[in-house]
């Protein structure tokens, strides 16, 4: 119970909420705007994270170039996924997208010589002998920590520095995407959520619009992957399980899929829900083992989501008409 009242833990939760927020912003553009159900979003995060680790550790690239290329690769991943499967109907695309993420993860798991395999990025063959990939961002994080230590003492942690870097970016991305969603580009996509024939009959290349939305969403997934890579300083294949995609979806559902502004609050809400359920240790739940409790936690989050869906199908911030009309 002690950790529950420690600010350090909640700072970590908030930093993660920011990263997950950027992650689910990608889903918001794909699903909330374009109606594309991507259940393989975690794949983009894995691609960028691992691209950074490999390029920096094995090829001694600068972190910044590696991050740039890593995000570009996530975009490319989105493009390939879309070009090969986006012409399928929505349900089939959803399944194909899961396969995409799983294939990515299996490839990472089984390519020891490149990715470090099951041991994670620590095992990436390193010409310099030893070292991580975060040296360059670490300079910035340390600088922030040093500035804050006089005021906050021990609370001026690395997590806090990550938080202070991630959240402004998150807000910037929210702002950009709110503007994007006011364009006629987004209007066409909102139309395609309901019907393809109408926009087509008005001369809109529906496939192009959807593909673009998928790629933009993938870019945000990739950026979240870069933040994630910095936050944890090492990566392993099990960081990128399907469940991560669904955490992103949970935030999106909490926010209301069509409301970009709710995403920040939903991300915090999700973070606290996720963090707080870790401390549900009283009897009779305390009778369960730790792994059982972690399942219970996902179960509890699910219950909250279902209750929310029943009460407010439009999410915490959505417009009801947009969800339940007819």
């Amino acid at each position: 119970m002690e950790a529950f009242i420690q600010p350090g833990f909640w700072i970590f939760v908030l930093a993660m909420a920011g990263i997950y927020g950027v992650f689910s912003l990608g889903l918001q553009i794909q699903y909330g705007v374009a109606g594309v159900m991507n259940f393989g979003h975690v794949g983009m995060m894995a691609i960028t994270g691992y691209a950074i680790a490999i390029l920096v550790i094995r090829f001694q690239w600068s972190f910044w170039w590696a991050a740039f290329v890593g995000v570009a690769l996530a975009a490319l991943g989105g493009a390939l996924l879309g070009l090969s499967t986006l012409r399928l109907s929505g349900d089939y695309f959803a399944i194909a997208s899961i396969a995409f993420a799983e294939i990515t993860r299996y490839w990472i798991l089984n390519s020891d010589g490149i990715t470090g395999g099951a041991q994670g990025t620590l095992a990436i063959p390193n010409p310099r002998g030893f070292g991580g990939y975060t040296d360059e961002p670490e300079v910035i994080l340390t600088w922030i920590v040093d500035r804050l230590t006089p005021y906050l003492g021990d609370n001026a942690s690395r997590d806090l520095a990550v938080l202070l870097v991630v959240w402004p970016f998150f807000f910037l991305f929210l702002w950009i995407s709110a503007r994007l969603q006011k364009t006629s580009w987004a209007r066409v996509l909102r139309a395609t959520r309901e019907d393809d024939d109408v926009p087509r009959s008005l001369g809109k290349n529906v496939f192009r619009f959807r593909l673009q939305a998928l790629i933009i969403g993938s870019v945000f997934g990739g950026i979240a992957g870069a933040f994630w890579a910095v936050q944890f300083m090492l990566l392993a294949p099990e960081d990128f399980l399907r469940i991560v995609t669904f955490y992103g979806w949970m935030i999106l559902i909490l926010a209301g899929a069509t409301r970009v502004k709710g995403l920040a609050i939903a991300a915090i809400f999700f973070g606290f829900l996720y963090g707080a359920t870790r401390f549900v240790e009283f009897w009779p739940i305390s009778l369960l083992s730790a792994p059982e409790r972690s399942y219970l936690r996902i179960f509890l989050i699910g219950v909250v989501l279902i209750a929310l869906m029943v009460k407010r199908p439009q999410g915490l911030f959505g417009k009801r008409q947009e969800m339940v009309l007819e």
């Binding site: 909102r190 309901e194 024939d197 109408v198 009959s201 001369g203 009309l325 007819e326």
Partner: peptide, 12 residues
């Protein structure tokens, strides 16, 4: 350009 039988409007 065409219209559809039964009038398709984008409801949302």
């Amino acid at each position: 350009v065409r219209t559809f039988q039964g009038a398709k409007v984008i409801k949302r």
